[in-house]
Design a protein around this nucleic acid. Structure first.
Length: 492
RNA sequence: CGGGGUGUGGCCCAGUCCGGUCAAGGCGCCUGGUUUGGGACCAGGAGAUCGCAGGUUCGAAUCCUGCCACCCCGACCA
């Protein structure tokens, strides 16, 4: 692994790009905008997935799987949804290749194999799923229908960045159907909280919960709830969304049920999703100029043990101690890698595990053998201390908990420092041009104002936070009356 | 879609302006040895039709034409 990263302070974007590569998380593939998620990066996703999946099941959802292709006629059924995604769709038009008569050894699309109806590669699955729900739902007894899907989707974006915005990405999408509006709203809200809890409890990434403005709302939704996180460069990241879909899809796909009185009614819906983008958020929340910093609850490896030795005999003695400590830690559910690879020197390994964000590193050398100690280094603070081998597993267990807490505290403190209230337009622009971060300000609630602010400052309304005191004021831009504050930021 | 850039062993890249032992260097890999408390060192070795297709020329990584791909910056977006 090559050494050294660009500094965050000098070029955040280059720092991020190189970190993703050097920490062995992902790389560009030969396909435009599409990434290869490498084993170490995928292990993080698997951890996220396992926890989220458990949370979905605890909240009553079941997993299912729907096709990657959506026939155009289904896709266009819900007009707003179709319109919103139309300009970023991959479309399958043919189903066969043939040998090119003009170019030996080359293939060409067989013009005779044109599909009667084009297939859209799903950018999201509402259409295909609601066309299926029509068959599944007849009675109020079939409701609520609570389904989640783990899948890949394709959105043909102009510009991509590893994890943050790739043409193909992995995600989960929940699609639920309910008998009443209030149930659907409750579900929408519940899943936003599930996401927020996951972000804080596992990713150690504090988020702001709120409502999207109309222009930022999901195409086809009545309301979009979201969680917004703040990255170390002062830009916001939309980390998850939960949509209240009203009866839009039920009407578009004619999904009705008979209520207990036998009356036919349209069902109410929600959909919600998070993606591999969370990994980008994880990176940009905690990592430093030495590399990745991972919260223990998501780290593929909790502890790396590095032996420091001269000769096979000494290595054998160290290995004996290391393996015993490893077994003790594993018994507590700690994931330990004992790295006795003789081809790498300790210094190389130290740098490598720092780059990969392993929360705790333990070094064991001849001095430690004599003293019954080990050297314990924590990734978050880079502090090192010598600890007695006795009860090490318990100490490491506590240390991992402390690291998890510290990362969240640190991220919260950062966010607090970079969340400011602007009372005047001057303050507003100065904050956005200067330190960046979230800026709370009164907004008149109109799309025109939102658009003008975006044009002049590049900042968008990330959300109207739920957690704010009722307070009237006047719009930062137009001076018109405002019923509350919106949260602005430049965003990814 | 605009602007910029890049394409040379597995990876990073020199060389391209000015055509001629130019296919260099570093990392990695293989062999052997010495090393090991913050990215070791020595010796030897393997590995490239220089993105693709044409063209100019005695001769092309280098010049010309066309094409393709990817990256970065913007607009758009999770």
């Amino acid at each position: 692994m090559a050494k050294g990263l660009p500094k965050r302070s000098e070029d955040f974007s280059a720092w991020y790009n190189e970190l993703v590569g050097k920490a062995d998380l992902a790389e560009h593939s030969g396909v435009k905008g599409c990434m290869v998620v490498k084993p170490y990066g995928y292990a993080i996703w698997e951890n996220m997935k396992a926890i989220l999946d458990q949370k979905f099941k605890e909240t009553g959802h079941q997993n299912a799987y729907f096709p990657i292709f959506v026939p155009k006629s289904l896709f266009e059924a819900e007009e707003k949804n179709a319109e919103g995604f139309a300009k970023e769709c991959a479309i399958v038009t043919h189903y066969r290749l043939k040998n090119d008569p003009d170019k030996k050894g080359k293939l060409m699309v067989d013009p005779d194999a044109k599909l009667q109806e084009e297939l859209i590669v799903r950018p999201t699955s509402e259409a295909i799923i609601w066309s299926t729900y029509k068959k599944w739902i007849q009675s109020y007894r079939d409701l609520p229908l609570l389904i989640n899907q783990w899948a890949n989707v394709v959105r043909w974006e102009m510009r991509t960045r590893l994890f943050l915005r790739t043409t193909e990405f992995l995600w989960q999408e929940g699609h639920t159907a309910h008998a009443t509006k209030s149930e659907a709203l409750e579900e929408t809200e519940k899943m936003m909280h599930v996401y927020a809890d996951f972000a804080e409890d596992y990713m150690a990434m504090p988020v702001i919960k709120g409502l999207k403005s109309e222009s930022e709302r999901f195409a086809g939704a009545e309301d979009t709830y979201c969680i917004e996180a703040l990255m170390q460069d002062g830009k916001a990241l939309q980390a998850g969304t939960s949509h209240f879909l009203g009866q839009n899809f039920a009407k578009a796909f004619d999904v009705k049920f008979a209520d207990s009185e036998g009356k036919q009614k349209y069902v109410w819906a929600s959909s919600w999703g998070v993606s591999t983008r969370l990994i980008g958020g994880l990176i940009m929340t905690h990592s430093d100029d030495l590399g990745l910093v991972l919260p223990p609850k998501l780290a593929p490896i909790h502890v790396a043990i590095v032996p420091i030795y001269k000769g096979d005999e000494q290595l054998a003695k160290i290995s004996e101690v290391a393996n015993k400590l490893k077994a003790d830690m594993q018994a507590k559910g700690i994931i330990v890698k004992y790295d006795d690879d003789d081809k790498r020197k300790p210094g190389w390994k130290f740098a490598e595990y720092e780059m990969k964000g392993v929360p705790v590193r333990i070094a064991i050398g001849p001095r430690d053998l004599e003293n019954g100690t080990v050297e314990v280094a924590r990734r978050d603070t880079l502090e090192k201390e010598s600890l007695q081998q006795v009860d090490l597993a318990i100490k490491v267990e506590h240390l991992l908990e402390q690291i998890q807490i510290n990362l969240l505290d640190r991220a919260k403190a950062y966010r607090e420092e970079f969340t400011n209230v602007a009372a005047t337009w001057n303050e507003f622009t100065e904050l956005l041009d200067g330190k960046g971060g979230f800026v709370q300000a009164h907004w008149d609630g109109t799309e025109e104002t939102e658009q003008k602010i975006k044009e002049e400052t590049k900042a968008t309304i990330r959300c109207i936070p739920f957690d704010q005191k009722e307070e009237t004021g006047s719009c930062i831009y137009s001076g018109k009356p405002s019923k509350g504050m919106a949260l602005f930021a430049k965003a990814y």
